[in-house]
Amino acid sequence: MRNSDRFLIAFNSIEKILRKHAPYDHYVPFSRLIGYVKKYNPIVMKYYDDLKEFSDLRNAIVHDSIDVNYAIAEPHDQVVQLIEKIEQELRQPMKVVPLFQKKVTTFQSTHTLKDILRAINTFSYSKFPIYDKQKFLGLLTKDGITNWIAKHVDKEPLSFSNVYLKDVLTHEKKKDENYRFIHQEMNIYDIKDIFRKNVEEGTYRIDALLITEHGDHKEPLLGIITLWDMMHLQ
């Protein structure tokens, strides 16, 4: 199959996908279509400039060709590979499960600060979901732990074995806002958008996204995603 044929197949598929999510009940040019969809679709936002160039290339292939069996422009292999990659991501973007699915180490409110410090030393953990039996209490971070230590550094004697995590958790700034539960069907572009908007708004920092089947805090954890995870995701 010619590169021009592969290109047009992928382009037409992309256009069909995007038109399903556009508010227009009439035809609009592709450039206007992607301009609208990019406002809420992080995949289109990511590839917006490429899609604009692909629109010009599609017009050259379709409208400027002098014969149905002759394409005035044959896209390079890299161009075809990219547009097929975009089409695949739009049609079936990677989801957080199974990509980030893993056993999450959780702690009970009656565990001690010594337990947490051992976990940091052994596993280099930095985010700690805290529960009271099955009830989720909050997400403890290294910042929260540091805040507790700073508050009590001059108090003697200082014994980490007698400090319960339910008390340390109260030193977590904005402890009700430093996490969010998400459902397992969310895709990686939705997740990137959550972190991006969080950074841009700058009101508070989301330290981690906690994955459950339906995004309910009462459900078992299926995985955890941090900003560091997203920064290192290709």
Rank of each mutant, 00 (worst) to 15 (best):
L139K: 11
H63L: 06
D77Q: 12
K103N: 07
H111D: 15
M1D: 10
N41A: 07
V28C: 06
T226W: 06
I194G: 07
A119H: 10
E84W: 02
P129E: 14
Y47C: 01
M94D: 14
R2V: 00
L99F: 11
Y70G: 03
K142M: 14
T112V: 04
R91I: 02
D49L: 10
H21P: 00
D64Q: 11
E89R: 09
N12T: 06
I9W: 02
D5I: 09
D115P: 00
Y204E: 06
E15C: 03
L140P: 05
F123P: 00
N178H: 02
L221N: 07
R196L: 08
E213M: 09
H21F: 04
V79T: 14
D50P: 00
D132T: 10
V80P: 00
Q92Y: 12
E177A: 12
D132P: 02
K85E: 06
V199M: 11
L210F: 03
N198P: 05
H152L: 03
S124L: 12
F54D: 00
F136E: 14
P93C: 04
K127C: 05
K46N: 14
I116P: 01
V44A: 09
H232T: 09
A71C: 09
N3Q: 09
K16N: 11
E172F: 03
Y47R: 01
K103G: 03
L33N: 04
D176N: 15
K52Q: 13
E87K: 14
M45R: 15
D176S: 14
P98E: 08
Q81V: 01
L113Y: 00
E87C: 12
K174V: 07
G202P: 05
V28P: 04
I145A: 10
E172H: 06
K133Q: 11
D207T: 06
S124Q: 15
F100D: 03
N3Y: 04
V44N: 06
Y36L: 08
S31G: 05
K133S: 10
E53V: 02
A150M: 10
V79N: 01
R180N: 03
P157T: 12
P75I: 08
Q134W: 04
K103A: 05
K192F: 06
E84H: 02
E177F: 05
K166Y: 10
S55G: 15
V153F: 05
M45F: 09
F54K: 08
D56S: 14
P157A: 11
N69K: 05
V28H: 07
Q134N: 15
M45H: 14
Y48A: 09
E200N: 13
K174L: 11
A22G: 12
A150T: 06
K174R: 12
K142H: 10
Q108V: 00
L90R: 01
M94I: 09
I43C: 14
R205W: 02
M230C: 10
A71M: 05
H76M: 10
I206S: 05
V68N: 12
Y48M: 06
F160G: 02
T112N: 04
R180Q: 11
H214N: 15
T122L: 08
I225A: 09
L139A: 15
N147P: 00
N162H: 12
